[in-house]
Amino acid sequence: MSIETERAARRNRMSVLARCETSRLQGLWSKLGLDPTYKLLRGPEYGLVMLRGRTGGTGEPFNIGEATVTRASVKLDDGSVGHAMALGRDDMKARLCAIVDALCQDTRTAVLIDAEMIAPIKSELDGADERRRQETAATRVDFFTMVRGED
């Protein structure tokens, strides 16, 4: 696997994990039956990231305001290191996401985690997005014109 595809897979995993409810994460995690021993390198700790927009949507960046985040880094016994950062204040989630990130350095475990954890969460999140899209679509205005006169 090239560095790019590996990086894309890692980013994708992190994106899915960061948006998942903690209770759902824990449920899927416990079903996996993985229980690696690990050492916390950093955190879990709360902090802020400054969010940015662009003037006019596309121009130069400006600061909108901050958001709370939680981050964690772990090291497994085999030496692989995992990182996580997610919006909100949630120690458990950041820790679990960092462990999953570390485990996925191993290609075989990554396949298992992608299939048993990432894929179901992704499909739930996509389902929620699709539902929202359809709810919004139902509020789309269908204009019609009334023709008056005969010319």
Binding site: E45, Y46, G47, L48, V49, M50, L51, R52, G53, R54, G57, T58, P61, N63, I64, E66, A67, T68, V69, R71, M85, D129, R132, R133, T136
Partner: peptide, 18 residues
């Protein structure tokens, strides 16, 4: 709270519009 860093500028063009 400590400031961990800055986010990349958001892309409002790619917004999931409600």
């Amino acid at each position: 709270l400590p400031r961990f860093g800055f986010a990349e500028p958001v892309d409002t063009g790619a917004m999931l519009v409600e």
